[in-house]
Design a protein around this nucleic acid. Structure first.
Lengths: 157, 157
DNA sequence: CGCTTGCCTGGAGTGCACTCCAAGGTTCTA
DNA sequence: TAGAACCTTGGAGTGCACTCCAGGCAAGCG
């Protein structure tokens, strides 16, 4: 029962500062009814993309004003922050939709979500390793170009 | 034609373990005239993609047999290995084409190539940092799920 | 000799992740 | 209360990186 997905996120706001848009402009809980353009500004996504995310099932049900306009909550912002992180890993949107479905389905999907996160973690580690391999290649090439700058040797590649 | 011996490649074909393709099946320089399907097996790219790379200017001029079929050299394989690494970084194909053009243009583009490589290096470092940020988020979430899992387990006991 | 396999070409098609449009209704500012 | 600036929808369009197709040439084999 205690496996609700959401509570950690609310404290997550300033946790990772390096990447992503700053989310310091939040309103306190209770007054958190952001329009779509506010959310666009906060997340760096376009309003188009936010509506599209909703259409494909990547967002939970978004609250609406009495006239039908979207009103996003801090919790929605938390979810979008997670989605943004996952997107950075190269995870396909379809997989994120799958995760969103699991969250919506309730606590009994806990194990599956856990496995999905662990798999994603492995993928991220693998991608970091790949990038470090590429970095080594680049460094070799850069130092070659640096040397060639003095020697002015003719080269291919 | 010379495709009789090349069945050895089939062992390597599916063995695409983790990072770049192992390039241990090369022939010595001087005997390096690979068909397009051999190169496909060695690089993990499809023949379609190899022809497409050529069409968009991402490959240097590829040698041809007397009947017009492509014959790739070890040098071409080296270039493809670099392209593969750059592709892993998420560099757009258009940028790689730009780099290829600089290489074709000759030695006087040395500085520009150097700058491009250094910029790419910065991009890779930034992406690694992003991924490490994401990793932190995932780890926090995973440990939360782990705790919740133990809680559930102990509840059940 | 025909059959199969591999290769050639230009151009069309695919899948993903947005991105935009038209035609309205709503909310804020002066 | 006017008008700008926002919001709504379904559906169509875009850009990237392939991916495939049709129609044909070339070589090895029984």
């Amino acid at each position: 029962m205690t496996v609700t997905e959401t509570e950690t996120e609310t404290t997550d706001a300033g946790a990772d500062s390096c990447a992503g848009p700053p989310q310091g402009d939040r309103r306190p809980d209770g007054a958190d009814r952001y329009t779509i353009s506010e959310v666009a500004a906060l997340t760096g996504l376009t309003a188009h993309t936010l509506r599209w995310y909703e259409r494909i099932g990547l967002m939970p049900h978004i609250d609406r004003s009495h006239t039908g306009q979207r009103r996003y909550s801090n919790r929605d912002l938390d979810w979008l922050a997670l989605v943004g992180k996952l997107r950075l890993t190269g995870m396909p949107v379809a997989d994120m939709v799958r995760y969103a479905e699991l969250v919506r389905a309730g606590d009994h999907t806990y194990t599956e979500r856990f496995e999905l996160l662990k798999q994603t973690r492995e993928d991220v580690l693998a991608r970091i390793a790949e990038l470090q391999g590429t970095l080594a290649v680049l460094d070799r090439k850069i130092s070659f170009y640096g040397d060639a700058g003095r020697a002015l040797a003719s080269e291919r590649t």
